[in-house]
Write a protein that binds this DNA or RNA. Structure first.
Length: 609
RNA sequence: GGCCCCGUAGCUCAGAGGAUAGAGCAACCGCCUCCUAAGCGGUAGGUCAUAGGUUCGACUCCUAUCGGGGCCGCCA
């Protein structure tokens, strides 16, 4: 690397204007997102070249990206600028790349810029840049990687929303973890996030619940419960029946349903929601809003939502075509109230009101989403089980219609969780009501493990959850592997403190990076802000889990390099300067691991047991 | 019959339209007098299901087909 490098300039590379964003940082304006900064530099170069005639003026750098190359032999960062601009500039990609390379070579951060392949520009950054990344991490601490990408946009993440008829099960667990992590992720990227649960307390299923609880109530009075086909048989209702007895005594005994139905339904629903809230709490999930479907009935809310659609000319009375293919025996044309969802990409218009005049399930859902829009959210996210796949197009259509296209609705479907124990499928008894609950899972493996494992797959891929394997302490268990990295660092820091080293000095004296394994780790740290933004933009929190695994891997790798090269170890007995130089990097890694785990809702381990 | 998801190494899976497609496991070969070897390094392993299309460039986007899974089959 050039000996005459102005390290001072290299560290303080932010222009004065940009540094303004970082006021209150005592003038130490280190970059937050290195990739964004270098991309800015490329864009600036394009503009400058446009001014002095090297390139046509006014080129749009919108599609220019700066990203880590697949192969690190290609350098630290690569930009596609020349290829993207070739057509609008009317020039050959490699010619553009050459001009950019010359320009960028004047940037103190950039050690070399080489044209490669069809017109890639491969950039190698000055060693000081990577040391600067480590310092930035230590300065920012838990805020490193936080961004204002969301610009305060109000996001509503609706998740779990299980029917209030029983405790949460494994499927809900995945949705709960996903939604919660996504909410944290979006908050980290500058969105204002509301976690919301939609209580389906308005449909027939809560009547069934009430009748089921009534039988348990009778049971509490010493009667034999009659759990008819279709009622909920689960034991968890026994206590609810008892509680009902404690509350109302024998007031409902041997009375007609009309006497007790409303009250028992309300009582049972509340009891179930208490259970569900406790289930969520055991996972560390806290909702901001519980929204009751029932609150939409009798208040004109549904009517208003349908009316809003009608005003847009999207509601009509009519019949649907019989289903294509074989027509069911009992099919007959029926007049009903339909929403023109086909105008927004749905396959067929959807009924909102049945021929008997009652609402379909779709109607309150429309009203609920209308309510979210009216509450002023800018972005809606629904996290649903994959069995709701058929619902996606019509709901997106409704939201597009009601918000005039202003509010995007993203529906994330979480696929099945398959349970195993030591590779053997976990058989659930066919007896209805006997399923593996969220509590079962959390009690067996703990909330941290549950959460991390649930995020080691994309939401739309099925997930295998093996009770034995997730507790295994080996490299192929990502939870352990990441936690182990963090614990190792904590162990080192404990020893450093015990040896009397001043850890706060490490950040100031700065890391001395020399080995490729150290640079690799610093590069990984530099990717964090970028990774966070990509994950938030695509609503994919699993990317955080995968990143942490990669980061841990780079760390373990460096750790073992210390076997061959003792000078790379983090602790150097009796040598404060050497220790300060080496300990900053693992400190920074610990900061990012705990920041990442915080987004996933996982507590970092400080030691392994 | 319709809709949704998936198809990448023997297995489980990553992969913002970029270069020679990457990890882990399993296999094989190495590394502990040294901060936790609960770890690390290396070798081997591929028609990214198939066929078209879009473009400077496709595992990635579009269409069709095949295969696996799921939901629905009608007042969803």
């Amino acid at each position: 690397m050039p000996g005459g490098l102005d390290t001072h300039a290299a560290i303080r590379w932010r222009t004065a204007a940009k540094a303004g964003e970082n006021q209150g940082n005592q003038g130490k304006a280190e970059p937050m997102n290195l990739f964004a900064d270098i991309r800015d530099a490329v864009a600036d170069s394009i503009e400058a070249l446009g001014r002095d005639g090297g390139l046509p003026a006014g080129l749009d750098p919108g599609n220019v990206t700066v990203e880590p190359p697949r192969d690190s032999a290609h350098g630290d960062m690569a930009t596609n600028a020349a290829m993207v601009l070739a057509r609008p500039a009317g020039m050959k990609p490699r010619d553009i790349a050459e001009k950019l390379a010359q320009r960028l070579a004047g940037d103190a951060r950039i050690a070399s810029a080489e044209v490669a392949g069809p017109g890639f520009l491969n950039l190698r950054l000055a060693p000081e840049v990577w040391a600067g990344v480590v310092r930035t991490v230590l300065e920012r601490g838990a805020d490193y990687g936080r961004s204002d990408m969301g610009r305060g946009q109000r996001v509503n993440v609706e998740f779990v929303s299980a029917n209030p008829t029983g405790p949460l099960h494994v499927g809900h667990t995945r949705g709960a973890v996903f939604g919660d992590a996504l909410a944290s992720l979006m908050r980290f990227t500058g969105h204002e996030v509301t976690r919301e649960y939609y209580i389906n307390d308005g449909g027939a299923q809560v009547d069934v619940l009430a009748r089921s609880v009534y039988e348990r109530y009778r049971e509490a009075h010493g009667r034999v419960p009659e759990i008819a086909e279709g009622l909920y048989p689960g034991d968890y209702l026994v206590a609810v029946g008892q509680a009902l007895k404690d509350k109302v005594g024998d007031a409902f005994l041997d009375r007609d349903e009309e006497v007790w139905l409303d009250e028992v339904r309300a009582f049972a629903t509340e009891a179930m929601m208490e259970t569900i809230r406790a289930d969520l709490a055991s996972l560390g999930v806290r909702m901001d809003v519980f929204f009751s479907e029932k609150s939409l009935y009798g208040t004109g809310a549904i009517e208003a939502a349908i009316e809003a659609l009608r005003e847009k000319g999207l509601i009509y009375e009519g019949g649907l075509e019989p289903p294509r293919g074989k027509t069911p025996e009992d099919w007959e044309p029926r007049e009903q109230t339909l929403f023109k969802s086909t105008e927004f990409g749905d396959d067929v218009d959807r009924p909102v009101k049945k021929s008997d005049g009652s609402w379909t399930y779709f109607a309150p859902d429309i009203a609920y989403h209308y309510n979210k829009i009216e509450r002023g959210f800018d972005v809606l996210v629904d996290v649903l089980g994959a069995d709701h796949g058929g619902y996606v197009k019509r709901m997106k259509a409704a939201v597009a219609a009601l918000s005039n296209g202003r509010v995007p609705l993203d529906i994330k479907l979480t696929q099945l969780v398959k349970l195993y124990r030591d590779g053997v499928p976990f058989k659930m008894s066919k007896r209805a009501g006997n399923f593996v609950t969220l509590r079962d899972v959390v009690e067996r493996v703990g909330a941290d493990v549950t959460r991390f494992v649930m995020l080691t797959r994309k939401n739309d891929a099925p997930l295998d959850f093996d009770f034995a394997r997730v507790l295994e302490q080996s490299r192929d268990n990502p939870v352990f592997y990441v936690q182990y990295a963090h614990a190792r660092i904590c162990s080192v820091l404990r020893k450093a403190e015990a040896a009397g080293f001043d850890l706060t000095a490490a950040a100031d004296s700065g890391p001395g990076l020399e080995d490729e394994a150290e640079f690799a780790l610093a590069r990984k740290l530099a990717e964090w802000p970028r990774l966070v933004e990509i994950a938030a933009r695509s609503h994919e929190p699993h990317r955080v889990a995968f990143y942490l695994y990669d980061l841990a891997s780079a760390f373990h790798s460096l750790w073992n390099r210390g076997n061959e090269k003792p000078e790379l170890r983090f602790l150097h007995e009796g040598d404060a300067a050497a220790t300060a130089a080496k300990i900053a990097l693992p400190q920074a890694v610990a900061v990012v691991i705990s920041a990442g785990l915080a987004i996933l809702g996982v507590t970092p381990a400080t030691e392994m047991r």
